[in-house]
Design a binder for these strands. Structure first.
Length: 116
DNA sequence: GGAATGACATTTA
DNA sequence: CTAAATGCCATTC
């Protein structure tokens, strides 16, 4: 690859992390998804890679990265601070207790729901 | 081109 | 149920 070319943005060829952001934007308020769901939605198993993309968090304002949690229903982590993430989710209407989401399945947003 | 990292997931003890 | 170990994939140094 070129030594230094970070600005190489091919609109027709979105990077893995770019696609993750697109999916996050589809997530409605009060709903949460998992890293696994995103990875699977992209046709891969890069669960950790998805979280990695969030950690870079190039645009936390356009992407609700706080709506992404672990499959266990736990918050996982947050670049701005786990406390902030929990606060945001709570404000969105998601109930969080003991560090995990209550009725996780109820607030879980499945991307497959969009295909229909 | 290769090693190291990470906001994960799954299995086994 | 909790803890540890292993696997997996993409990005970054």
């Amino acid at each position: 690859m070129q030594t230094n070319n970070k600005q190489n943005k091919h609109l027709s060829d979105l990077s893995f992390n770019e696609q993750c952001y697109l999916l996050l934007r589809k997530i409605p308020k009060g709903r949460v998804t998992t890293y696994k769901a995103i990875a699977e939605a992209l046709g891969t198993k890069a669960y950790q890679a998805v979280g990695n993309a969030m950690n870079k968090n190039p645009n936390p304002i356009n992407v609700p990265c706080h709506r992404v949690v672990n499959t266990d229903g736990r918050l996982g982590g947050y670049a701005f601070g786990l406390e902030k993430k929990m606060a945001l989710l709570t404000k969105e209407g998601v109930v969080v207790a003991e560090g995990r989401i209550v009725d996780f399945k109820n607030v879980f947003f499945d991307f497959q729901d969009l295909s229909d």
